[in-house]
Computed example of a mutant assay.
Amino acid sequence: MNKTERLLAIMIELQRSRLLTADELAEVLGVSVRTIYRDMQALSEAGVPVIGETGLGYSLMEGYFLPPVSFTVEEAVSLVLGAEFIEKRFDPAFRSSARSSSKKIEAILSGPIREETSRIQGGIRLLQKDQMAVMLREKEHLGIIRGAMLESRKIRFTYNKRAAEADGSRTTVRTVSPYGLAHDEQNGWLLLAYCGLREDIRHFRVSRISELAVTEDTFQTPDNFNLQAYQPKDTRSIRVSAIFNSEIADRVEEANNYYMETAESKEDGYHATFRVREPEELLSWILGWGGEVVVTEPESFRNRIREEIAKMKERY
């Protein structure tokens, strides 16, 4: 990285962050602190309004913005595809913003870069199932949840669980404090929230939420809660073992089941182990493989599968 590139990189970092020390900039750019001091002097002499606060760091004068920067083809494709992903998977407000930002990005690209970006983008497709009712409901709920988070208001909803409770019910009404949203490729959007019923942080699949409403009650997110660093408690204590037909081992691996812990090919088949809270969480998935899989333990789950197969036989 030459000096010109480094000065631009410093300005971009300062525009992204309100305050950075010389040590932090040196680490990001891979240069010495002395070099950062010289670069700051050069920026000041060039008329860039850099503010140095003793003992705190550097910042750009409020209201100062960089002129549009140029993008490489790879950078432009990354931004356009990222905007397309947001357009397909977020709620209407973000979808509209993603669409307009994508147009702005394309507008500032040079002719050759725009053509190459369009060519590469044409060879990449993000598949979606926009017409599914569950997807449409999920996107609508995202907007409501985001609004509640911004206003620090609790939400109430009916949650449809995969596994039935002890009394046989599969739905519960929850009032929660929404702390954040996370996206998982397998489970879709997850709501992380403090649940009043469980008196602890829980995560809920947004696609299983219905009758969602924002309440008048407010909440305050704990100072020590960090969504980026949060790791949910692992309450999966039941171990399930199964043997799949070796011929479908690649398909089982591609399925990438969330509960799978280990998998190994042996002479008698593809051995896999799972850890779940309730075996019922695996029932539909296991039955979906038909005669290509045999559950070996626990015996209680084997009996549950037998019961379900008996019900199926009665229907055929």
Rank of each mutant, 00 (worst) to 15 (best):
Y179T: 08
E106R: 14
I10Y: 03
R251H: 14
V295R: 12
K266I: 11
T175H: 01
E253Q: 14
K313C: 08
Q121N: 13
E278D: 15
A310D: 13
M260A: 11
E247K: 07
S17C: 05
I10G: 04
E307Y: 07
R38L: 07
T175R: 09
A26G: 09
D200C: 09
L29E: 08
L127K: 11
D250M: 10
P112Y: 08
R153C: 08
V73P: 14
K266A: 09
R146Y: 07
S102Q: 07
T262Y: 00
I155F: 00
L29C: 10
E308C: 03
G269K: 12
G82V: 07
R236L: 01
R208P: 02
I113F: 08
L66H: 05
T117S: 08
L181P: 15
T72I: 12
Q228M: 07
I36V: 15
S101Q: 07
F85C: 07
R205I: 06
T21A: 00
Q131V: 09
L126V: 08
K3E: 12
Y230L: 02
G147W: 04
K311V: 06
L60I: 04
L29Q: 12
G180E: 05
S78D: 10
R16V: 10
D223I: 15
T296V: 01
R174N: 05
R146K: 05
D167I: 13
F94N: 05
S207K: 03
E13T: 11
E5V: 02
S237I: 13
A164C: 04
E297K: 02
